Amino acid sequence: MRMIAAALLMLPALVPVQSQAEEIAQVGVDWVGNDIVIEAIRDPDVGGVTCHLAYFERSVLDRLSQGNWFEDPSNSAIQCSRTGPVDVSTLRPGAPEDVFSEGRSLLFKSLRVKRIYDAENRVLVYLAHASELSEGSAKMSMSTVPLPVEEAGARPTD
């Protein structure tokens, strides 16, 4: 039983984190100390794309009053922008790839950012969503980064 508990505690550490987030700001939203945290996440495989992820972080007072001590809400918002040259030559079109993952509860919930390369439309799609062990989560946010024809590997039309 102890081995199972230890394995469950290590589960968030076993999930690969592709990119590190840099906290940009915390915005206080109420008198009990709940905050909205905004982080910058640079895409490690593409370069030239930075996503800003906003999510809710509960205060100690809110955790005590709600009785759910070890979990933050799944709500998030994401916006991604070009911040330099973009190279998509190593990406597989249509294949969701992990960019970022961060634990949102003690054991079973994480906030994830995935990238999908839509080669036909010359767009990078970034999806922020919660991953939960049971019942999943329908809470998500999406952002797109359009690519110029020359960066998407397509030939310009005359």
Score class of each variant (00 low, 15 high):
Val27Met: 08
Gln79Cys: 04
Gly84Tyr: 07
Tyr126Ala: 10
Gly47Trp: 05
Val17Gly: 11
Gln66Ser: 15
His52Gly: 01
Ile4Arg: 06
Arg155Gln: 11
Pro93Glu: 06
Phe100Ser: 01
Pro146Asn: 07
Glu151Leu: 06
Ile78Met: 04
Leu111Asp: 00
Ile24Trp: 04
Tyr117Ile: 08
Leu53Arg: 04
Ile78Leu: 14
Glu39Asp: 15
Arg2Asp: 12
Cys80Pro: 02
Ala54Met: 01
Glu132Arg: 15
Lys109Ser: 13
Gly94Lys: 04
Glu39Ile: 09
Glu23Pro: 00
Gly48Ile: 04
Val29Lys: 10
Ser59Pro: 00
His52Arg: 11
Gln18Phe: 03
Gly67Pro: 04
Arg63Asp: 08
Asp62Thr: 12
Val125Arg: 12
Ser110Val: 12
Leu11Met: 11
Cys51Glu: 01
Arg104Ile: 09
Ile4Leu: 14
Asn34Glu: 11
Leu8Ile: 08
Phe108Gly: 09
Gly28Met: 11
Pro146Trp: 08
Tyr117Phe: 15
Asp45Val: 13
Gln18Ile: 05
Arg155His: 09
Val29Thr: 15
Glu57Trp: 06
Leu127Pro: 00
Asn68His: 09
Ala54Lys: 05
Asp118Thr: 10
Gly28Gln: 14
Ser59Ile: 10
Leu133His: 09
Pro146Lys: 00
Pro85Leu: 10
Ser59His: 12
Leu107Ser: 02
Asn121Asp: 10
Ala25Ile: 03
Ala21Gln: 04
Glu135Arg: 10
Arg155Trp: 02
